[in-house]
């Protein structure tokens, strides 16, 4: 059995646990494990740069941000009022409908061809850096501007408003 199916099973299981666990802190921890399995997927695809970036940005930065916010809001107990059962069942049916629709559309195409790596060195840091800094230099610089804007916006939004007199 290929390693892909084992990791896919694991990530599906942990993704389900993420959305069905009541405790928000446990939910975040399951999401961290899900992202780790995604990192394994990237390594299996031989996309090493993406694997490292996924590991650092998602598991390091974003998840720490989520945990900090949960800690700030003091939500480590099950206080969340859940939606009614009818809404839940309808939501699950809607999600399954989406899945079935996309799978049905997939059968129109002939995509049974195995994933053949034409150029195994495509995802290495060296090659991707060449592409990033030659063809995509302007979007790269613009993304730094985007991050700066997001940082200023986040600080401005989360700052306490001064007391009005």
């Amino acid at each position: 059995m290929s390693l892909f199916y084992v990791v896919a099973l694991l990530s599906t299981f942990f993704a389900l646990m993420t959305i069905f666990t009541k405790n928000p802190v446990h939910s975040v921890l399951y999401l961290v494990i899900t992202f780790f399995t995604f990192t394994v997927h990237y390594i299996l695809l031989n996309a090493q740069f993406l694997a490292v970036v996924n590991f650092i940005v998602y598991m390091g930065a974003i998840m720490v941000l989520f945990l900090f916010v949960l800690m700030l809001l003091n939500m480590n107990e099950d206080v969340e009022p859940m939606k009614s059962t009818l809404v839940k069942v309808m939501a699950v049916i809607a999600g399954c409908c989406l899945f079935v629709t996309v799978c049905g559309a997939l059968h129109l195409f002939d995509t049974q061809t195995p994933l053949i790596e034409k150029d195994p060195s495509i995802g290495l840091v060296k090659n991707l850096g060449q592409v990033l800094f030659k063809e995509f230099l302007l979007p790269f610089e613009l993304s730094s501007l985007l991050l700066l804007t997001a940082m200023v916006g986040a600080v401005l939004l989360a700052k306490k408003e001064p007391k009005r007199i």
Binding site: E80, G95, T113
Partner: peptide
């Protein structure tokens, strides 16, 4: 290892995870 996995299965797996995300947005209130 990679060459035994059809591209189809990657699409199916991504769709599954995407659907789980959609269900999560719909059923949670947090």
């Amino acid at each position: 290892n990679l060459q035994t996995v059809p591209l189809n299965h990657y699409i199916l797996f991504s769709t599954l995870i995407f659907s789980i995300g959609v269900i999560g947005v719909l059923i949670r209130r947090n």
